Simulated assay, not measured.
Amino acid sequence: MGLTKKGILLFFGAIVSGVLMLILIGWITWLLVWGYAIYDAYKSAEKMNMGIAVEDNIDIHNLFWW
C-alpha cells in the first residue's frame, strides 16, 4: 500500500518550490504542490478506507525525457 514514488515526487516538488521562493514564483508552485498533496492524501485515504487498493503507479522513467 505504500505510495513511496508519489511521496518522493511531492517532496522533491516542495524542495524545488522552496528554492524558487527566492524569485517569488516558488510561492505559486509551493501552493500548487501543497494543494495537490492535500487533495491526493484525502482521495487515497478515502479509497483505502473503502477497501480499494491504492497503487503507486507513477513511472519515474517516463517523467523525464533524458
Rank of each mutant, 00 (worst) to 15 (best):
V19I: 14
A53G: 01
F12L: 15
G51R: 03
G2D: 13
M48Q: 15
E55H: 09
V33Q: 06
I15V: 15
I25E: 00
L63M: 14
L63S: 03
L31H: 04
D40P: 00
L22T: 10
L31R: 02
W66K: 13
G18V: 03
G51W: 10
D56K: 04
I58G: 02
I58C: 03
I23Q: 05
L31Q: 08
K43S: 09
H61K: 15
G13R: 07
V19G: 06
V16T: 08
I8S: 07
I15C: 13
D40W: 10
K47I: 11
G13E: 00
N49C: 01
M50V: 09
W30F: 15
G2H: 11
T29R: 03
M1D: 09
K5Y: 04
S44Y: 11
G26D: 02
I28T: 05
T4A: 05
L3K: 06
A14W: 05
K6Y: 13
V54E: 07
S17Y: 01
K6G: 07
Y36C: 01
L20A: 09
I58V: 15
S17K: 00
I23Y: 12
I8N: 01
I52C: 03
D40G: 00
I28E: 03
W27Q: 01
M50E: 11
W27R: 00
M48W: 08
L22P: 00
L31S: 05
F64P: 00
K43E: 13
L63F: 12
D56L: 09
L32D: 01
N49K: 15
M48G: 00
N62A: 14
M21Q: 11
S17R: 03
G7N: 13
I8F: 06
Y42E: 07
Y36H: 05
S44V: 15
L31K: 07
M21A: 02
G13T: 02
H61R: 15
I8W: 09
F12R: 06
I25H: 00
L31I: 12
L32R: 04
A53Y: 11
W27C: 00
N49M: 14
T4W: 08
S44R: 07
V33N: 05
L10P: 01
Y39V: 04
W34Y: 13
K5C: 03
W65L: 10
S17G: 11
K6T: 14
I52S: 03
L24W: 13
N62I: 13
G35P: 01
K47C: 10
D56Y: 08
I28W: 12
E55T: 14
S17V: 04
G35A: 04
G51M: 08
W27A: 02
A41L: 13
W66Y: 12
D40R: 12
L31Y: 12
G26F: 08
K43H: 11
A37F: 05
F64R: 10
A53R: 06
G35E: 07
L9Q: 02
G35I: 07
V19L: 12
V33Y: 01
W34Q: 05
L3T: 12
F64H: 06
I52N: 00
I28K: 03
L10F: 15
